[in-house]
Structures are given as structure tokens and as C-alpha cells.
Amino acid sequence: GLEHMADEEKLPPGWEKRMSRSSGRVYYFNHITNASQWERPSG
């Protein structure tokens, strides 16, 4: 619920959580730099 939404908002600017269609794993994508990574971004 609300706790999940608050957790999402802690991601650094530009980052969003996405799911890989090929593997079904969650990864993180930065739409500003077009960077993507499996680890949760910090800072």
C-alpha cells in the first residue's frame, strides 16, 4: 500500500523500477542517462 509507494519514491532522480520481459526479473532504469542495472541505485 502506501509503504510501497514511499519506498518507490526513495529512488534517485531519473530512476524507475522495471521488469525484464525476458527473465521476469526486476531491474532499475534511469530515463535521464539511459542507464540500467540490476542493483538498486543509491544516492
Rank of each mutant, 00 (worst) to 15 (best):
K17Y: 03
Y28I: 00
E3P: 13
H31E: 09
S23R: 06
N30A: 00
S22N: 10
E8V: 09
E39F: 06
M5N: 13
G24N: 08
H4K: 11
H31Q: 11
L2S: 14
R21H: 12
E16Q: 05
K17W: 02
G14W: 04
Y28D: 00
P13H: 09
R18L: 05
R18Q: 03
S22Y: 08
F29T: 03
Y27H: 03
E39M: 05
G24Y: 03
G14I: 01
E9L: 07
H31G: 07
T33K: 04
G14T: 01
A35T: 14
L2D: 14
L11E: 15
E3F: 01
A6V: 13
D7V: 09
V26G: 03
K17N: 02
I32M: 09
G43K: 12
P12K: 01
H31R: 10
P12S: 02
G24M: 04
G1E: 13
Y28M: 00
S36L: 15
S42L: 10
S36W: 15
S23C: 07
M5R: 10
P13R: 05
Q37N: 02
G43Y: 11
G14E: 04
L11G: 00
W38L: 08
A6D: 14
A6Y: 13
M19S: 07
Q37H: 04
D7N: 13
D7R: 07
Y28P: 02
E9P: 08
E16H: 08
S42Q: 15
H31N: 14
E39I: 05
P41W: 02
G24V: 03
M5F: 10
G43T: 13
M19L: 14
M5A: 14
H31M: 10
S23E: 08
G14F: 06
P41C: 01
Q37S: 07
G1N: 13
H4P: 14
K10C: 14
N34Y: 06
K17E: 07
E3G: 12
Y28T: 00
F29S: 02
S42P: 07
R18W: 02
E8F: 02
H4N: 12
E39P: 04
T33Y: 03
M5L: 10
G43E: 14
K10F: 11
N30I: 03
F29Y: 15
P41Y: 01
H4I: 14
G43Q: 10
P13C: 14
R40V: 08
L11W: 02
D7K: 08
L11D: 15
G1A: 13
P13E: 09
V26H: 08
V26E: 11
L2P: 13
R40Y: 09
T33P: 00
T33Q: 04
P13Q: 05
A6N: 10
G24L: 05
S36I: 15
H4R: 10
R40T: 08
T33R: 03
A35W: 08
G14H: 08
I32L: 11
Y28H: 00
S36E: 07
G1V: 13
K17Q: 09
L2N: 13
K10S: 15
H4V: 13
E9C: 14
A6H: 13
G1W: 12
M19K: 10
Q37F: 03
A35G: 06
N34W: 05
G1I: 12
T33M: 04
W15E: 00
L11A: 01
R25Y: 05
L2V: 14
R18F: 04
M5I: 12
L11K: 12
G24H: 08
R25V: 07
R25S: 05
D7G: 10
S42M: 10
R25I: 06
S22K: 15
E8I: 09
E39S: 04
H31P: 09
L2T: 14
G14L: 02
P41Q: 00
S42D: 11
L11M: 04
R18E: 01
S36K: 14
G14A: 03
L11S: 01
P41G: 01
A35F: 08
Y27W: 05
R21V: 13
N34S: 07
H4C: 15
G1F: 11
W38T: 06
S22H: 12
H4L: 11
E8W: 01
P13I: 07
S36F: 15
L2E: 14
E8P: 09
V26R: 04
E16V: 09
R25A: 06
W15I: 00
F29W: 08
R21N: 11
R18I: 07
S23I: 06
I32R: 07
E9T: 08
